[in-house]
């Protein structure tokens, strides 16, 4: 079985995340770039299945700038067998439509039985790319899984929606996305780090994937940013130290603001 894990590079949430006001795009130079933690959990799902099934091949795929290399190497060090990096300057500012088209093309190239992604990234947070990829590949998808059992012919799991849980299954090939309810990723071991250097690492351009933007994306709607405004920082207001009467003072504050 071949499992492909989709990974995305995001600005580290422990730093300040910045949008470039002239382009509306994430300023990736303004903060440390890391592989989104949720994608490492997705990789962990694949690797723990591989631990028990030695014939499983795990491929990590990412689309992004050269900075993605570090994250993909980490994926290899954790135990993935090979990596594919889609790198093309024409993809700067790609929306979810373009991104899902390119990832679907990359998955067609690698081949797959199961695709695993994080449910939503910490930067864009759209949570739509996995289902879009599934539609483009003509396969079932199950997103937002809180538990996953993989078998030779299918995947079973539970997903949370706003109104309760669903137990669902899909036949393979399929695309799934997982939530942070799934276990944290393992740390790369020294041996893994050393062997990662010898594992296949493919860098693919759009041309390599058979995509000519002028042809592939003609007539396809694309979301674009018109304007970006930084909201003024929220100022702190009144701050008091409780001297036995703070609860009553707070009630007065709420009354004054018509909040009771």
């Amino acid at each position: 079985m071949k499992i492909v894990v989709l990974m995305k590079q995001v600005p580290d949430t422990y730093g300040e995340r910045i949008l470039d006001p002239s382009t509306g795009l994430v300023d990736r130079s303004g903060s440390d770039a890391v592989i989104d933690e949720i994608d490492e959990r997705a990789l962990e799902v694949a690797l723990s299945y591989k631990d028990a099934h030695k014939d499983v091949e795990v491929v990590v795929v990412s689309m992004g700038s050269t900075a993605v290399t570090v994250g993909l190497r980490k994926g290899l060090a954790m135990g993935a067998d090979s990596a594919v990096h889609v790198l093309d300057s024409a993809l700067a500012g790609a929306d979810v439509g373009w991104t899902s088209t390119v990832l679907a093309a990359a998955l067609t190239t690698t081949g797959f039985d199961l695709v695993i992604a994080g449910n939503e990234s910490t930067d864009g947070g759209g949570g739509v790319v996995p289902a879009m990829v599934a539609e483009r590949l003509g396969v079932p998808h199950v997103t937002y899984l809180e538990s996953v059992q993989i078998s030779d012919d299918g995947v079973v799991g539970e997903r949370s929606t706003g109104r309760g849980k669903l137990r669902v299954h899909a036949a393979l090939p399929a695309v799934i996305s997982i939530t942070e309810r799934l276990p944290e990723a393992r740390f790369p071991k020294f041996k893994g780090i050393m062997s990662a250097k010898k594992k296949p690492f493919t860098v693919a351009s759009l041309g390599d994937l058979g995509i000519d933007p002028a042809v592939t994306f003609a007539g396809v709607g694309r979301s674009v940013v018109l304007q970006t405004t930084k909201r003024p920082a929220r100022a702190s207001g009144k701050k008091i130290v409780d001297e036995g009467n703070a609860g009553v003072e707070l009630a007065d504050f709420l009354v004054a603001g018509h909040l009771l």
């Binding site: 509306g24 709607g221 930084k230």
Partner: peptide
Amino acid sequence: YTVESTVEGG
């Protein structure tokens, strides 16, 4: 941030 976006071409 407040961002405004639209769709082009579809």
